[in-house]
């Protein structure tokens, strides 16, 4: 099983099956209310979280999550919102018995001097073994912090600039390497 490297110290929930923990923060020039509203509509998450294919809310607190690794494998799980303070915090975890054991929190706290909102995401997961473990390792790559930071920056761009920066689909001469130079 490929191991997931992380710099944060992991607390061992079960010996030999360490939990991985990721914490990232990002300041966004929008009000906590606005960001909370956007995040709480869980269907919105895949617009900025790269590896999420879809999140479907099945009841007020229950949802079904579908994620995809870069190699095309998908994994699904059900999650439950276990704690919620309007405009401040949302906490969720995967339902017992899910393929994936994951728990996360997002906090929205006002940044000083009207700079917007500090969005702090923290989540913990138990890297499972076998096929699912491999998919998880690929979802978050070798650097889960980087992935989460990337997602937060995409959320920030979407909320502040109204769109996520991209170069996908722009021209490149990559495939022209062996083609005769245009003269």
């Amino acid at each position: 099983m490929p191991t997931v490297k992380t710099k944060t110290k992991s607390r061992a929930a079960v010996t030999g099956n360490p939990r991985k923990k990721v914490v990232r923060a990002c300041t966004i020039r929008r009000s906590p209310e606005e960001l909370f509203r956007f995040w709480r509509r869980l269907e919105n998450l895949p617009t900025f979280a790269k590896h999420l294919v879809a999140v479907t809310q099945t009841s007020d607190t229950e949802s079904r999550w579908v994620a995809k690794s870069p190699t095309g494998h998908t994994v699904e799980w059900d999650a439950l919102i276990i704690n919620e303070h309007e405009n401040e915090l949302i906490a969720w975890e995967s339902k017992p018995g899910s393929e994936i054991q994951i728990a996360g929190t997002v906090r929205f706290q006002p940044a000083p001097a009207g700079q917007g909102t500090e969005v702090v995401v923290a989540f913990e997961y138990v890297p499972p073994g076998g096929r699912i473990g491999e998919i998880i390792a690929k979802l978050y790559g070798e650097e889960p912090e980087l992935q989460v930071e990337d997602d937060l920056m995409r959320l920030k761009a979407l909320m502040e600039a109204g769109e996520i920066p991209t170069t996908e689909g722009q021209p490149t001469g990559r495939d022209q390497k062996n083609v005769r130079r245009c003269e």
Partner: peptide, 27 residues
């Protein structure tokens, strides 16, 4: 279209590439 592309140190070439298109609303 023709574009100046980088292929390595001291290796710059003018090659044919596709034309760019709008990718985002503010493009």
């Amino acid at each position: 279209m023709r574009a100046v592309c980088w292929y390595g140190t001291h290796d710059v070439r003018v090659v044919n590439v596709p034309e760019p298109k709008l990718l985002n609303p503010r493009d």
